[in-house]
Design a binder for these strands. Structure first.
Lengths: 195, 195
DNA sequence: CCATAAATTAAACAATGTTCAATATATGGC
DNA sequence: GCCATATATTGAACATTGTTTAATTTATGG
């Protein structure tokens, strides 16, 4: 029996998340299971379920942290560029991050939660922060009173990137087409339309 | 034991696909299982596996047929409209179809195949036919020698629609944002960029 | 030192995809 | 009509899942 005083409750929660991430990184999201995490962390299944109500919650927390990593990655970008360049940089940063953490990003993109799963507020906030980066990078393009248009456009950019990654995850982008090609073209088309 | 002469091999294959589609339509892709299909069709699990090597193949065939249905749905569209209108019609037809067959479309969009699953040629051909519709609707916009650009743009439109549907499937489009809003805006942005 | 609360285990459950030997059925040759 | 052969079908098994729960162990506070 793993000793209760080995780690505080909080520490163990972190250990579980670290272990889950390691399994996902090394073997993909489909290889993740409660028992593997448990044995990896030196406890048994039940303990996992006391820290995370179910597997969806565990994956959800992990994915939230992955979004946080992406946000940090993007926050390092220079903020002085002209709006067009800045959007390109942002898109490239997305692609970079996805290439650097393929399995973890795949989990964010294509893990299917069960029907009664609820989105944590922290998760939504993180998405909003990422959308905020896109908003900042493009707001000079909406000098008029077209703020609602911008909201829609940001969602569209986000959805489009999401689709590119989704198709990429299952190798369905098309022969010779890369994520980078499509992301660049997406920004290009968008900027042309805004001109 | 179900009598062997009740149906020819081909008939039984069709029955299995019909049953699978019914289960998906009524209870969603996550409710689909080999045993449910088997009992629904009046046979046992093993028979399913003699007709479809594994569940991925079964879903793949079903999804291929769904794409076929979408293609038929889109083929009824008038072909005389100006290119812009035609692209809007096409996008609306996609959205219509997805709204008409939510669960079956969800299966196409977000079912995760196993790691060693291979895409059937028939499936890819069907995707190509759908991309062909987009190509036809937009080719007058590429009067110059920009055919490679068009190929990329078609893939981009496809990926973007895909992303919109993916996010919609998990209710993550954003507060008050609909599939139709985004699809229309997508076409709008694209056409503006092409102008 | 003991009572209480919390953490942890071990075992169970139902459901899944998948395989396989045994059995039943149809078919073609006589 | 009968028999051998090929094929279809079953039924049971296996490993793996997520999840629950009663029993046990551990820490903590009086």
């Amino acid at each position: 029996m793993a000793r209760r005083s080995d780690h505080t409750r909080e520490e163990l929660g972190k250990l579980i998340l670290i272990s889950a991430r390691r399994i996902v990184r090394e073997h993909g999201i489909d290889a993740l299971s409660a028992r593997k995490v448990a044995s990896d962390v030196g406890y048994t299944v039940g303990t996992i379920y006391q820290h995370f109500g179910n597997m969806d919650d565990l994956v959800h927390r992990m994915n939230g942290e992955t979004l946080e990593m992406l946000f940090d990655h993007c926050s390092k970008l220079p903020t002085q560029e002209p709006p067009g360049d800045r959007l390109f940089s942002l898109a490239r940063a997305f692609v970079n991050f996805a290439e650097k953490h393929p399995s973890e990003w795949d989990a964010v993109i294509s893990y299917r939660y069960g029907p009664d799963h609820e989105w944590a507020v922290g998760y939504d906030e993180m998405v909003n922060q990422l959308l905020g980066l896109l908003t900042d990078a493009t707001s000079s393009l909406y000098c008029g009173g077209h703020r609602e248009e911008q909201v829609l456009d940001i969602r569209l950019l986000w959805a489009s990137m999401y689709g590119i990654f989704s198709l990429h995850a299952s190798d369905r982008l098309g022969k010779g087409v890369t994520v980078d090609d499509l992301a660049r073209r997406l920004v290009d088309v968008y900027l042309r339309a805004m001109r």
